[in-house]
């Protein structure tokens, strides 16, 4: 059999060549692209907002149940001009950040320590597991007795709340380090520090980020409740105050702000995760 006898049969040629009829393909492609883009995640919130505004304006939604979004925006503007909103926002954010930093860094340190050291684990892990089983909001009365309604009360509660997700996930990430990679590192003469820095810690990062995102959720939850129960400033305090004066628009504003802050924290965490875990197949954009 000679090569010259081989000819390509017709059906092998693709009937539709890419780009041959672009006007037929483009609309589908761009709609898909739009739905897959980052902007798409805002389509549903925007629609909800529109429906909300429309029903409020048509009188379907009594104002004593839910004020129109425009009224909430007006309230936001009013409170911004008086300076009430920025001050409260700043107070809340400060509490959240300080509490998170204290609780988070302690948790990270203990997670690492107990992950690598059996002695550390023996000494502290049981204690942590016991405290973990107390819902941190059950501590509110005690915390008020300890700290009064000072800032430190909220900071303490936030720190306590973020501690466990970060502690447990850091600890777990370190503990489940890939034994084969550790053996590989040792066989290539890595020191303990190199082993930790190059093998164990990077391997624990995905787990640590899971803890981080949980912690951020708990951070807001704790703060909202703590500020609503007892505070003299902050978004939660603003909401409680507004309730007493029947300012529904401010109450709704406070809730929306929490939603936005929560989203902001989560986006930050996601961004950090994407940056730190570039190597992870789950974060590699398909080219």
């Amino acid at each position: 059999m000679s090569d010259t006898q081989i000819t390509l049969p017709r059906p092998f040629v693709r009937p539709v060549q890419p780009g041959a009829a672009p006007h037929l393909r483009r609309p589908k492609a761009t709609l898909r692209q739009l739905l897959l883009s980052d902007a798409a995640s805002w389509i549903v919130p925007a629609l909800l907002l529109l429906v909300w505004q429309a029903t409020a304006q048509l009188g379907l939604l009594p104002t004593n149940v839910l004020p129109a979004p425009s009224e909430v925006v007006a309230a936001a503007w009013r409170l911004t001009v008086t300076g009430e909103l920025p001050v409260n926002l700043l107070v809340s954010a400060k509490r959240a950040v300080i509490g998170f930093l204290i609780g988070g860094s302690l948790a990270f340190a203990f997670g690492l320590l107990n992950g690598v050291s059996r002695i550390g684990e023996k000494l502290t892990d049981t204690t942590f597991q016991m405290i973990r089983n107390i819902p941190n909001l059950a501590m509110v009365p005690l915390v008020i007795l300890w700290f009064g309604i000072e800032d430190s009360a909220r900071v303490f509660l936030v720190a306590l709340g973020v501690f466990f997700p970060i502690y447990i996930n850091t600890y777990h990430g370190i503990r489940t380090a890939d034994a084969q990679l550790v053996e590989m590192g040792r066989s290539y003469g890595m020191s303990n520090w190199e082993l930790f820095r190059q093998v164990i810690l990077p391997g624990a990062l995905p787990s640590i980020f899971v803890g981080l995102r949980y912690a951020l959720g708990i951070m807001w939850l704790t703060l909202i409740v703590a500020e609503t129960i007892a505070a003299n400033a902050g978004i939660g305090y603003m909401a409680t105050n507004a309730r007493e004066f029947m300012q529904l628009d401010v109450v709704v504003l406070a809730i929306l702000i929490y939603a936005l802050l929560g989203k902001l924290a989560d986006s930050t965490a996601r961004f950090l995760e994407r940056t730190a875990l570039k190597w992870h197949p789950a974060f590699q954009a398909t080219p």
Binding site: Q180, L181, E183, M184, G185, S187, Y188, M190, Q198, V199, P202, G203, L205, L277, W279, H280
Partner: peptide
């Protein structure tokens, strides 16, 4: 040196950094 049955590359290190290990 021992070459294992599995590659045992560090997933978080670029190929060249894995070789540098």
């Amino acid at each position: 040196r021992l070459m294992f049955q599995e590659p045992r590359l560090l997933p978080w290190a670029r190929v060249v950094d894995n070789v540098a290990v």
